[in-house]
Design a protein around this nucleic acid. Sequence first.
DNA 1: TAACTCCTACCGAGCGATCGCTCGGTAGGA
DNA 2: TCCTACCGAGCGATCGCTCGGTAGGAGTTA
Lengths: 234, 234
Amino acid sequence: MKVETAKKVEDAAAWRKYSENVLPPLLQAALDSFVEHGYHGTTIRTVAARAKLSVPGLYHHYASKQALLVAIVQFAMTDLLVRSEDAVAEAGSSVEEQFRLLIECLALFHAHRSELAFIAASEIRSLEGESRTAHIKSRDKQQQMVDDIINQGMREGVFDAEHPKDTSRAIVTMCTGIAQWYRRDGELSPEELAVRYANIARMTLGVGPGSRRESVLTAPTPVLTDARGRPDRG
Amino acid sequence: MKVETAKKVEDAAAWRKYSENVLPPLLQAALDSFVEHGYHGTTIRTVAARAKLSVPGLYHHYASKQALLVAIVQFAMTDLLVRSEDAVAEAGSSVEEQFRLLIECLALFHAHRSELAFIAASEIRSLEGESRTAHIKSRDKQQQMVDDIINQGMREGVFDAEHPKDTSRAIVTMCTGIAQWYRRDGELSPEELAVRYANIARMTLGVGPGSRRESVLTAPTPVLTDARGRPDRG
DNA sequence: TAACTCCTACCGAGCGATCGCTCGGTAGGA
DNA sequence: TCCTACCGAGCGATCGCTCGGTAGGAGTTA
């Protein structure tokens, strides 16, 4: 019972924790190359060299260049969806809180995992066959989560928007857009940015930054963790 | 004098007018290919075939594949900047109106010229040398225009934002993001979308959709024009 | 314990296809 | 005689990918 409670508390905050080097070295090399030159602009030789492997050495691990992209994109979409569901679950039954945490989660992901999110968004057209279909489905599901919460908030009279569907898209777009410009060496930490974006998003729904502005995220909670998931600062 | 006034009135609304087929056929073929497969995913043979030209025929008009991209991107950034300046100029001295028209202009451009805007944003990394530098400079200038108006509005007490800089970036991102998802066959016309986005943007600055919601854009002003710049409907 | 058989984890060399681009033309109007 | 507007053929480079290996560790047998 005691253990279960502890576990539950830990799990509840799992969506906020981002460890570094989550990708195997070879996928990380591919990701870095894709970010720099795009999928078609990247050669298999570049990726292999970056991973300190020969070309056949690379093909021992992945069947094709396409397989590298698929693995990266699938990792990204699964990670985001799991985190999003955790965030909404943590919020309980309050739509306002569900919305706030979901937007924080979205912003947090696109700042912490900006390279991953950038490729997942920009290289959809380079995905072949059903990988592309599956990816688009995930994107739509992500958008739908925000739509649903906003619609629920509208019904409850908590939110006020002239065009909820457009507002929802605008909010999701501004969050996913973070991946395009966010730099780790910039002024804002992902956590600070996420709180600000959640507040901006709330404004579009007629809810001021108002109550509970001091989110748990701004408290001294350790957020960055090492490869084993343990805090490495804070 | 009379002529000059008429010209001035016409010019003042020029930023709202979008004619089709603004690009020479060859550049349009290149743009369509870049949108479908990306710059590196596009072969010069594909572009040539699309333009009903042989490969040497293509090279008669443009020196290289890179030159095609540069021409497209330069056209896009010049068009947007000129329109933005016209929009702000039309607004007169009211920051609130300057902001509203600038956001409408931004949204309008990214909906009407979504392919152009999409490539200009996503293929920056494929630009070589000073073309890339020049393009980034233009992007920054565009962002700066919004920053400046928001800052002015803050000083005048018209706008209220906790973090004006972040709000500004969020607004610009959500507008440029239109190019990623907008479809001409969707539910909203570019003009309807632009009005909605301007209102959403105003909300983030603590200004309700409020006054003057019926913008000139929703009035029966003809907006689409033919290749010669004349209205073709309305 | 030495020899043998697997297995994983690679690599040097290179294949066929395709890439961006060019050479040396032609056709037709001024 | 130019010039513009093209094109068939093809060059050298590079692409994604593969062939036929080797190195070394684990497990099995004599």
